[in-house]
């Protein structure tokens, strides 16, 4: 618990983490307002569709939780990287990483719940055709799971790259409307099982993929990806000199 607390404090001291929190909570609500004005009936995914761009906040938190250990910027930084301090404070690398993952998951989960509440309330207030009720709670759980898994995936990639630039660019571009994963589904139907597309089934019922995947299956497929990628990151991190 002490380690998780320490990781939460580190996260809270990062400007990027606060930007991420802002993006995660404000962006979906803003999208909801924009979409409600478009007068187009949005069907079963109204509200939940709007939550999708908020995952950018989860991505940023997942990335910076790891990349901040390595990046040194600023004129008088003294040249030291935080990772050295972290690993002398917590000798066990496994416990260090588990604490970090837990801190990321807890933060992102809270953001997901907060953002869902704001966005779904906004949607039902601004769009009379939509009613959100307790029946949607499993889908809120789905959104939360999707955000957590995305954040952990981003952390896993960053563990390997040690720089936030690649995972941030890759993940943010891919979650956008010009999704590369989505494009790849036109090449092969296997692309539907890429983590982002599979995971979307956790909370969206009308995913424009070429294969229909049940919510639980989608979640399991994405979870498997996270285990594999984070596992590779974990092994690389344990073997590498800090």
């Amino acid at each position: 618990m002490k380690l998780i607390h320490a990781e939460l404090i580190k996260l809270a001291s990062l400007l990027s983490a606060w930007i991420a929190a802002g993006l995660a909570t404000i962006l979906p609500a803003a999208v909801a307002v924009l979409n409600s004005r478009s007068q187009v009936s949005r069907g079963i995914d109204a509200g939940f569709q709007d939550l999708a761009p908020g995952v950018i906040g989860a991505i940023v938190i997942g990335v910076v939780a790891v990349s901040s250990e390595y990046l040194v910027e600023g004129a008088e930084s003294g040249g030291g990287r935080q990772i050295t301090t972290s690993l002398t404070a917590v000798a066990s690398r496994s416990r260090f990483l588990l604490a970090k993952a837990a801190a990321v998951a807890v933060t992102v989960a809270l953001l997901a719940l907060l953002s869902s509440a704001i966005t779904l309330t906004t949607t039902s207030l601004t769009d009379e055709t939509v009613s959100v009720g307790t029946a949607d709670l499993p889908r809120v759980a789905g959104v939360t799971a999707y955000w957590i898994l995305t954040a952990l995936l981003a952390s896993g990639i960053t563990l390997v790259t040690r720089s936030g630039i690649v995972p941030l660019t890759f993940c943010i571009v891919n979650m956008s409307v010009v999704s590369v994963s989505f494009l790849l589904t036109k090449l092969t139907s296997w692309a539907n099982y890429l983590p982002d597309l599979a995971g979307m089934h956790l909370f969206l019922r009308d995913v424009h993929g070429s294969v229909d995947i049940a919510p639980l299956t989608g979640g399991l497929v994405m979870g498997l990806w996270v285990v594999v990628v984070a596992g590779i990151g974990f092994i690389v991190f344990r073997r590498r000199d800090a």
Partner: peptide, 22 residues
């Protein structure tokens, strides 16, 4: 901004989320 990550997040959010929305 003189900082890579905040600048990157801001730019990508604009170009890939906000831009396409409007």
């Amino acid at each position: 901004l003189r900082r890579t990550v905040p600048a990157l997040v801001g730019l990508l959010t604009y170009y890939f989320v906000i831009g396409p929305l409007v």
